[in-house]
């Protein structure tokens, strides 16, 4: 299968700390690839470099064969990757529907359109409502975003990722802060996406990761120590040693 994302020799340091230490990783088209690792392993830093908020010190990132290492974040999004945030990142002052509609609108060639009222453009609103319905937030469409619960905010993050229709979704701990029931819902939801999108999933919830992932990479101190299917990761001594804890 073709690789949608290829990371080669990626390096990023903050002061003396190597947050990303020679990371090599290939993500295949339509797989769900999970990245696990202890706190401070550099998972979020890795996502930030992939989505373009942070620039690596060295190394290359290829998206569908194209070197995007120097491409700015907004342009990467337009090439077909979307990200969600570990700490909810939404426009709190706008309604739920407005947030999703912005993600829909982002697919237009440009938004230098000044005349028509955006909230009256049926195509934008209807499509946004569809994605809200998909994550089960249809009845919350007109609520101010700030009024929603944490769990609902997580679902909004997913709806934005869906609305982008990006083939590559970078999901940074979508289960963070969710209760067991909400987590189970999220897992079921991501399962439904498998095979339709490529998902690079960062997650702390091991049950979720082993239930979802086609392949898992283990990141420790900025370095990938193992990549493989869930069974081989579970059986890997280095991983057990470094991450899952010694019994």
């Amino acid at each position: 299968m073709a690789n949608i994302l290829e990371i080669d020799g990626l390096m990023k340091s903050f002061g003396g700390i190597k947050a990303t230490d020679n990371v090599n990783l290939a993500v295949e088209e339509n797989e769900l690839h999970a990245i696990i690792g202890p706190n401070g392993a550099g998972k979020t830093t890795l996502i930030a470099q992939l989505s373009g908020q942070q620039m690596p010190d060295a190394g290359t990132i290829r998206f569908r064969g194209r070197d995007i290492t120097q491409v700015p974040a907004h342009a990467r999004a337009r090439l077909g990757m979307t990200r969600s945030y570990q700490i909810t990142s939404l426009v709190m002052g706008m309604s739920v529907l407005d947030n999703i509609a912005l993600a829909v609108q982002a697919k237009d060639a440009h938004s230098f359109r000044f005349i028509r009222s955006a909230r009256k453009i049926a195509s934008l609103r209807d499509e946004a409502r569809r994605y809200l319905a998909e994550v089960g937030l249809a009845d919350r469409a007109d609520a101010p975003t700030v009024n929603l619960s944490h769990g609902e905010h997580r679902l909004m993050e997913i709806a934005i990722a869906l609305a982008s229709e990006a083939p590559l979704m970078l999901l940074d701990e979508p289960m963070a802060g969710l209760g067991p029931e909400e987590s189970a819902q999220m897992v079921a939801f991501l399962k439904g996406l498998k095979g339709k999108r490529t998902i690079l999933l960062i997650e702390h919830d091991m049950d979720a990761v082993f239930a979802l992932a086609d392949r898992i990479s283990v990141l420790v101190y900025g370095h990938i120590i193992a990549t493989g299917d869930p069974a081989s990761i579970r059986g890997n001594d280095d991983v057990r040693h470094a991450y899952l804890g010694e019994e």
Binding site: Q53, Y85, V91, G93, I160
Partner: peptide
């Protein structure tokens, strides 16, 4: 409200 989010949406 959230410039970073707008950037990652592609704006």
């Amino acid at each position: 409200g959230n410039p970073e989010r707008m950037v990652t949406m592609g704006y």
